[in-house]
Design a binder for these strands. Structure first.
Ligand code: FES
Ligand code: FES
Lengths: 151, 151
DNA sequence: AATATATCAACATAAATTTATAGGAATTAT
DNA sequence: ATAATTCCTATAAATTTATGTTGATATATT
């Protein structure tokens, strides 16, 4: 049902991956590495990163030694920005963005319900940044290293 | 992106429509009427109502004079129940329900973010019932009747 | 200057899923 | 019997998801 598209899911993971390298150095990250680390095909990543570039969340550096880097610091990139870039909207139903989408909007009893949920989500994703995801990620990785054999 | 499927959207509207007739009488509502009132094809409604029937949210009466009625009072049917019946889950990403879905779950920095959003939504839809949708609906309809020519 | 490495662009295509329509069988009130 | 209606299965259309191909362009390294 209310599922995040793979574009949104993979795209956010791609951004977190870039954020991890952003911290370590200023060297660009190549999609080949992201592909191996995240288990997503390069071809698909190439398609997914296009809107992220258009929306100036990442910068590309062409040629040998090139790759992608975050356009801003992880603290300055909201999860909402990423989802918006990848999907164009953040609403649960089309009728929130486009009032002509549903004919029955004037008498529809569910419109306000979806609208409330959309605002809830939007507010949540507005408050979260890539930095938050990065910290979760690093915490999990170091925890996994501490007890490498358990489970 | 995070879009409610048409199944979820149409199915909820179908339930609100049944709720409107539930109040008025105990006579079953036929899909032909729902189809006309909601602008959704009968054939599609027939498919959408199956999971609602399986999950005992509606009862069907076959044959001439038959149709569908709510299995319980609108106050006793949560929006969450409807979405759950229609979609099988209420999570934003598969990995919430199925831990084997993503390989990288142990180190993924986005998992907790989607999980938080899922819980936010689930909590919201848990609190809302068909009755709430019904009241919104009736309020809008009577408001539309009061000023019929404006806009 | 030549070579290797990457992005970039424009496709094309295949697989899977969602969305939607269609035909007819089964059931029941009249 | 007839008409009304759900029920069941098939299939078509559209969209999403994913991979493949070909080559152009930019840049670091040798
Ligand atoms: S107005 Fe779009 S679902 Fe009701
Ligand atoms: S674990 Fe599923 S998206 Fe990260």
């Amino acid at each position: 049902m209310i599922k995040l598209s793979t574009k949104g899911r993979y795209g956010t993971r791609l951004m977190v991956n870039l954020a991890r390298h952003y911290k370590n150095s200023n060297e660009p990250t190549i999609l080949k590495n992201v592909s191996e680390e995240e288990g997503i095909s390069i071809r698909y990543l190439e398609q997914i990163i296009i809107p992220l570039k258009i929306n100036r969340l990442v910068k590309s550096i062409r040629g040998a030694g090139g790759g992608y880097i975050l356009a801003r610091k992880p603290t300055e990139i909201k999860i909402c920005d990423i989802l918006h870039a990848l999907e164009g909207s953040c609403s649960l139903v089309e009728c929130i963005e486009d009032e002509t989408f549903c004919e029955k909007i004037k008498t529809c009893g569910t419109y306000e319900i979806w609208k409330g949920a959309t605002e809830l989500l939007r507010n949540y994703f507005e408050k979260l940044t890539l930095q938050d995801a990065l910290e979760i990620c690093e915490k999990k990785i170091s925890a996994a290293k501490k007890r490498p054999k358990i489970k």
